[in-house]
């Protein structure tokens, strides 16, 4: 089985939404700023519910916020 990784464009999307701060995004989706920091750094994969809430804040499809990359098996 390959290594799974969920990557995100939150930093870019925040920039394009009037340079929204991490704290503002955290308040809009109902988590702490530390959790937004962890998600942006790829240290935490959010629940499906939180991912949808973030996509709704940015008014964009979920696939534009998060993407799933499966690394190929090493030969």
């Amino acid at each position: 089985m390959g290594e799974h990784r969920v990557t995100n464009n939150i930093r870019t999307l925040r920039f394009h939404n009037n340079e929204m701060t991490q704290q503002e995004l955290a308040e809009k989706v109902g988590v702490t700023r530390q959790t937004i920091v962890a998600i942006e750094k790829g240290k935490y994969s959010p629940s499906l519910e939180l991912a949808f809430r973030m996509a709704r804040v940015f008014n964009t499809p979920l696939e534009e916020v998060f993407s799933f990359n499966e690394k190929p098996k090493k030969k």
Binding site: G30, V31, T32, Q34, T35, A38, Y44, P46, S47, L50
Partner: peptide
């Protein structure tokens, strides 16, 4: 101090 615990916590 964080006012609440979120899903990650």
């Amino acid at each position: 101090q964080p006012a609440f615990e979120d899903e990650r916590d």
